[in-house]
Simulated assay, not measured.
Amino acid sequence: MADPVFNIQRVYLKEASLEQPNSPAILLESEQPAVEINLGVNAENVAEGIFEVCVTATVQTRIQDKTVFLAECKQAGIFEIREIPEDQMGAVVGIACPQIVYPYLRGNVADLITRAGFPPVHLAEINFQSMYEQQQQGANTPVVTQ
């Protein structure tokens, strides 16, 4: 068996969007909005030994039942992964790759929200091993409320 190969080919912002459906009226409210953050990880084998791993963050802020803003960013990485035992591939793609991509996502989410004129939302550190294990057990994607 050849030596294992794990190379980062590229990390890139795949998608970003921000909506303010109730502006400008909602911006005049003095009440603090509730913040809900959803995170997800998706991996796809795009070629022999080449995987795209995407980490998505959706941040929604609301005052009562009205949305202040809804931001979604999808950060992706292309990884060359070869000669890894099959029983370890899930962990490499579901834990190691998202850990590399996530810091870029955190920065892009904070930047997008700040450039829209809001205080930045800083995504917390994530334990991707725990998230992966939950997904393996059929649990839903974690939701973080601040």
Rank of each mutant, 00 (worst) to 15 (best):
A124Q: 15
L123R: 04
S130C: 11
G117D: 06
D111K: 09
N108H: 14
Q134F: 15
A116P: 13
Y102S: 05
Q129D: 13
D111C: 09
Y102Q: 02
Q129T: 10
G117W: 10
R106M: 09
N127I: 04
Q134T: 12
A110K: 05
N108R: 13
V121G: 06
A124G: 01
P98I: 00
Y102K: 07
M131P: 07
P120H: 08
G107N: 12
L123Y: 03
M131C: 06
A124N: 07
N108S: 14
N108Q: 11
Q99P: 03
L105G: 02
T114R: 13
M131G: 06
T114K: 14
N127L: 10
T114L: 14
Q134A: 10
D111F: 11
V121Q: 07
H122R: 13
M131W: 14
P103D: 06
P98S: 03
A110P: 06
N108E: 11
Q129W: 12
N127G: 06
S130N: 14
R115E: 10
N108D: 10
A116D: 08
P103F: 14
F118W: 06
G107V: 10
E133Y: 03
I126W: 04
I100H: 05
P103I: 04
G117Y: 07
G117F: 11
R106Y: 04
T114H: 12
Q99K: 15
Y102M: 05
F118Y: 14
Y102C: 05
F128W: 01
V101G: 03
Y104Q: 05
E125Y: 04
L112M: 14
H122S: 12
I113F: 03
D111Q: 15
Q99V: 07
L105S: 00
L112N: 12
F118D: 08
F118L: 13
E133V: 06
A110E: 09
E133C: 04
I126E: 00
A124C: 08
A124F: 01
